[in-house]
Design a protein around this nucleic acid. Structure first.
Length: 269
DNA sequence: CTGGTCACCTGGAAGC
DNA sequence: TGCTTCCAGGTGACCA
């Protein structure tokens, strides 16, 4: 999916258009997403959106008496379109706000649209999530402590949402490159000093991606439908066999936990 | 508890 | 051109 930056960019893109507005209708054309879209979602008409929040890669539309939970999976996107714009093949759900329609598209249907009337952090999908990487609480000391008993590789650790949220496959490789850390390094072996570098690299990578309009997705479009986003230039991701942008040594591609990892064997130890 | 594997689904690109 | 194979942003469920 979209990783944290894409979700945050979507949040910022749609918020000004939906906060304070009332949902006048919900159209579900395909309810078979990762989980079946519950009836409560179809019954949202009449509620006003108070805020659009984010926890990890979940978008949360605060409707006062509950939250609409949206996860974009691997291929989902939310955009605002004018009423009357014909839905495409994979445009599964429309939330009509009158003059504008918030439309969910998700070709692979790995995404989810759910409703909860409990505090969202108590929801089963969010209850066990780890720390937000852009929060102040996420610092070297914290990362060092979190990694201590984990034998797994630092790459897989970074992608484990129970520890740290929002760092997906692309930004995990990118952050490790920036920090000069080999992706196969065992998490517990990282010194406090290297944790310092890694925390800085993660924050820098995610912030830069958000600033750039968040685009890990070839066809990513911001929540306001704006085009002309800036395609991030990756240091190593997707560059297997090509020269490292820093030292020209060939970028390597390996597989960890069935996911591709890219790194430079010279710059990362 | 940790760590590893599989599954869900569609489309695009590469290979023959 | 057309068919086949591989690969892709995530993460819950299941196993040892």
């Amino acid at each position: 999916m979209p990783e944290l930056p894409e979700v945050e960019v979507t949040r910022r893109g749609i918020a000004p258009h939906v906060v304070g507005r009332r949902i006048v209708g919900v159209k579900v054309r395909e309810s078979r997403l990762r989980w079946r879209v519950p009836r409560a979602v179809r019954a949202l008409a009449g509620r006003a959106v108070r805020a659009v929040k984010r926890r990890a890669k979940y978008l949360l539309l605060d409707c006062g008496d509950g939250h609409l939970i949206v996860h974009l999976g691997m291929s989902g996107s939310l955009r605002l379109v004018a009423p009357g714009v014909k839905p495409g093949k994979h445009d599964h759900i429309d939330f009509s706000f009158g003059e504008q329609v918030l439309r969910l598209r998700d070709p692979r249907r790995f995404g989810a649209v759910l409703w909860t009337d409990q505090p969202p952090e108590a929801h089963r999908l969010m209850r066990h999530l780890g720390i937000e990487p852009l929060s102040r609480r996420f610092d070297a000391r914290r990362l060092h402590a979190l990694t201590r008993k984990h034998r797994t590789s630092i790459k897989q650790f970074l992608m484990d949402g129970r520890r740290i949220v929002g760092v997906g496959n692309i930004y995990a490789s990118e952050s490790l490159f920036l920090a000069g850390i080999h992706p196969r390094t065992r998490a517990r072996r990282l010194s406090l000093q290297r944790c310092e570098r890694l925390v800085a690299a993660i924050k820098q990578t995610l912030r830069a991606a958000i600033r750039a309009g968040g685009s890990t997705l070839r066809d990513f479009v911001g929540g306001d439908g704006a085009r002309g986003y800036y395609q991030t230039r990756y240091w190593v991701y997707g560059r297997g066999g090509k020269g490292c942008r820093r030292c020209a040594a060939p970028v390597r591609r390996i597989v960890q936990g069935q996911r591709a990892t890219y790194y430079c064997a010279r710059c990362q130890r």
